[in-house]
């Protein structure tokens, strides 16, 4: 692991999302909420979702504490799932997961070109297998919320 890998992991965009997380706070009238727990490190996030009549994500927010990677990833997640259908959120989660683990190739990501372009800054975690769970914690939670489960763990 080199200093370049580290700079790749902790890019300006990520540090900015960590310091000024978007959509941070509770949604009092959320349709669904779910907690994301990483039992290994104790990080906990709660994701709040509001769906409209067409089952589109109308509003999304999160609260919680965690490392820079998990907070930045949660913040970015909220910016890309807004306006998506339940199926699209599930698909995005799958693609994002593959992006973080290095399983995906570029072509496969075309469907959500704009979203993946945004999320690609998180792909630096590939060099840090122990940190993939940090990046995916909020996604596990949003997946649980949208599929009407109460909690998600990264285990």
């Amino acid at each position: 692991m080199s200093v370049d890998d580290l700079r790749e992991l902790y890019q300006e965009v990520i540090l900015d999302h960590n310091k000024n997380p978007r959509n941070y706070g509770e949604l009092s009238d959320a349709s669904y909420t779910a907690d994301g727990n990483n039992p290994l490190c104790g990080d906990r996030l709660t994701v709040y979702l509001k769906l409209d009549d067409n089952e589109l994500v109308n509003e999304v927010a999160f609260t919680g504490k965690g490392c820079a990677i998990s907070i930045a990833s949660a913040s970015m997640m909220t910016t890309v799932v807004k306006g998506k259908t339940v199926k699209q959120v599930n698909d995005l989660f799958d693609k994002f997961h593959k992006l973080c683990t290095g399983e995906s190739d570029e072509a496969e990501l075309d469907e959500f070109e704009d979203e993946i372009a945004k999320l690609r800054v998180m792909s630096g975690v590939r060099q840090f297998p122990m940190r993939v769970k940090c990046a995916t914690l909020s996604w596990h939670a949003v997946e649980a919320a949208i599929n009407k489960k109460d909690t998600a763990t990264t285990e």
Binding site: M1, S2, V3, D5, L6, L9, Y10, L40, C41, G42, D43, G66, C67, A68, I69, F128, M130, R131, C134
Partner: peptide, 29 residues
Amino acid sequence: GIHSHDLSTILDSRGVSIRAGHHCAQPLM
């Protein structure tokens, strides 16, 4: 302003191994 996990990853890049997390002592945390 620095979470211990981020610190641990960065220290690791310099060959320094430390533990980060709740140390199996969540009530104390």
